[in-house]
Simulated scan of single mutants.
Amino acid sequence: MIPADRKQVYYQALIDKKSEYEGIFYVGVKTTGVFCRPTCPARKPKFENCEFYETAKEALLASFRPCQRCRPLSHPNHVSELVRKLVEAVEENPEHRWREEDFRRLSVDASTARRQFKKRFGMTFVEYARARRMGMALKQIRAGSAVIDAQLSTGYESGSGFRDAFSRIMGAAPAQLGEQRILKASWLDTRLGPMVAIADEQALYLLEFVDRRGLEREIERLRKRTKAAIIPGSTPPIESIERELTDYFAGRLTEFKTPVTLLGSPFQKEVWDQLRKIPPGQTTSYAHLAAGMGKPSAYRAVAQANGANQLAILIPCHRVINSNGELGGYGGGLSRKQWLLDHEKLGVAE
């Protein structure tokens, strides 16, 4: 049974269409007989006409049918057929430079593709395809090919145009990238909404919910700190964390093995190390963490280090709450923090 005060919170999230509540609750609308996800675009019902459920199964068992607009039985961030088709087309020929006739050949409306890619990936389709071409160009340059060869293979007749586009995406001109590190970024769908993972071939550097406030600045700081180019793609650590997150949300995993690289001050790293020692199903406070580190007066600095964590869930900053028992803050949203804590307590109980 969902408490009355939480129902009020869920209703406000429904009105505001807050994406951070995806997967946390479903709403059954008594006047229509349908149930929806929190971000449904349909007209909002009155509070007294709403029934709230924590799973789609509960809503179905209460005789509600799935809404045809928000499709609550599909993944909250299910990739559309159009997006899937275009991503596959790019992977078949990543060096191809897309033109209007290519969209017509696939019976795809270019403006629709632009809109759907912008919503899904935060970039238009043309920008996505360009990033993949640039990734191929970088691979050629690092393998010893001349810049002019990489330029022509990616469809740029103008050397200056190639350099400008390359620099915007990679963060440096092509001639400067011979030894530059490469990080790859991938979109991961999870039970609580989409996350972005950034890694090289050896370790994971960042894992955050896509709608986290300030994520763009966080990624830019990562790029500057590592002096790396960040391009779309996947690596073994990204594939590993995707598998582990699936098992974690299914209740089959409590300890993550994906290798990580921590970028922070010695004090921040010490805090993050302490966070990883908090067992699943348990919580602690900033003051208790600080005391455990032998620095009882540094609880504010501990809180700041907690907020600087770039590896959500893996470094479990969600297990830190206020000394008075209140949740405190969480970059991914308090609703997710509560869900994660409840999920881990349930796993321990089982």
Rank of each mutant, 00 (worst) to 15 (best):
G307L: 14
A89C: 01
Q268D: 06
W339A: 08
T31K: 07
L327N: 08
R130I: 02
F103R: 04
A4V: 11
L192N: 05
A291R: 15
L245Y: 05
S240M: 04
A228P: 12
R300V: 11
R69G: 07
L245V: 06
E54M: 09
P194H: 04
Q151D: 02
T154D: 01
C50T: 11
K46I: 06
G333T: 09
Q338I: 06
K119C: 07
I15D: 06
S297P: 01
K257H: 14
E216T: 12
R336A: 02
R133K: 11
D189L: 00
S285M: 03
M195H: 07
H288F: 13
D5R: 11
R120F: 14
S111L: 06
E242S: 13
L346E: 06
R120I: 02
H75A: 06
G193D: 04
L311H: 11
A312R: 15
P45S: 15
I15E: 10
S153I: 07
G307I: 10
G159Y: 15
T246W: 00
Y299L: 11
R252P: 01
A301W: 06
D200C: 05
D211K: 12
R300G: 06
G281Y: 01
S80H: 04
Y248D: 01
T55S: 09
R243H: 08
A42E: 09
P3S: 07
E218C: 14
A229Y: 01
G178W: 00
D342M: 08
E239A: 12
A165C: 05
P259E: 00
L177T: 15
A291L: 08
Q116L: 11
V108T: 03
K184V: 12
L334N: 13
R191C: 11
M195A: 04
G28N: 02
A349S: 15
P41Q: 03
V348P: 04
H343A: 09
I15S: 08
N322H: 14
R97H: 05
D189K: 01
R168L: 09
D189T: 02
V9F: 05
A287K: 15
G161K: 03
S158K: 02
K57R: 11
P279W: 12
A303H: 10
A185W: 08
R99Q: 09
G329I: 07
N49K: 14
T235E: 00
R104E: 12
M170W: 07
E270H: 14
V34K: 09
W187M: 12
S265V: 10
R6Q: 15
R163S: 08
S153G: 10
M136I: 10
E208V: 13
